[in-house]
């Protein structure tokens, strides 16, 4: 395994760069960061819309989430690649398509996780807060969401980590991220697929593990500071 790393690390790290487009782990990280950055706020909005008392809003978002969750990401990426340019009338890169598809997909999943958190908070709390004269939004912001988000942090961490791993599906539209690079290496080394995939597993593990550990540490800290642990 070490030999593979020694020989092919530039390809795994940056792809064809600087002789071609940036790829490999660098691209995986960029896609993942963009995916997380856009999907989190979007998912909060969707979750709030889903539990909101406004009927049509919760209906529309519920249907949206339902359809997105029903389509395999692989298919969603594939369709986005060919449909998005038709909708906006100009061609977009595979990279942009992948980020868009990931954001929409992850937002739908995260929204479900957050909704579950909101619904797990006893309804008495909302009633208490409202009866004290707080508005609906204030109740959500100050009473419900802080508890709900904290309660579902482990599930949210799962989703974040999934986002990183799911960037690997970019290969269907030829985004030459880490898995794509690993396939190229595999094609060169040929007879050691287990080792190549071993290297791939270790790299993903390191990236994902550091993320989930940092979030767990954050979770502990918040709980401790609130004396909940």
């Amino acid at each position: 395994m070490l030999e593979i790393v020694r020989e092919y690390w530039p390809m795994l790290l940056v792809g064809q760069y600087p002789n071609g487009p940036l790829g490999g782990l660098a691209l995986t990280l960029i896609v993942a960061v963009l995916g997380l950055a856009f999907s989190l706020p979007l998912s909060l909005l969707i979750a709030l819309a889903r539990v909101s008392p406004v009927k049509w809003l919760s209906f529309v978002t519920a249907q949206f989430v339902r359809v997105i969750r029903g389509i395999p990401l692989l298919m969603l990426i594939f369709w986005a690649y060919f449909v998005v340019p038709k909708l906006i009338g100009s061609s977009v890169s595979g990279f942009t398509t992948l980020v868009c598809a990931l954001v929409v997909y992850q937002a739908a999943y995260l929204a479900e996780v957050i909704r579950a958190g909101i619904e797990a908070i006893p309804s008495g709390q909302i009633e208490a807060s409202r009866s004290m004269g707080s508005s609906y939004m204030l109740t959500m912001r100050k009473v419900i969401l802080p508890q709900a988000l904290l309660n579902v942090l482990p599930s949210m961490t799962n989703q974040f980590v999934s986002t990183i791993k799911e960037t690997s599906l970019g290969y269907v539209i030829s985004v030459n991220e880490l898995t794509f690079s690993a396939n190229q290496v595999n094609n060169l080394v040929l007879t050691q697929p287990l080792q190549v995939f071993g290297v791939l597993a270790v790299v993903y593990f390191i990236v994902c593990f550091s993320l989930s550990r940092s979030l767990r540490w954050l979770d502990m800290r918040i709980r401790r500071s609130r004396a909940m642990a």
Binding site: E7, Y8, P10, M11, G15, Q16, Y17, N19, G20, Q184, N187, L188
Partner: peptide, 10 residues
């Protein structure tokens, strides 16, 4: 068609 490992070109 493949990426050459030395030049990293197609």
């Amino acid at each position: 068609s493949f990426q050459d490992n030395d030049t990293r070109q197609l």
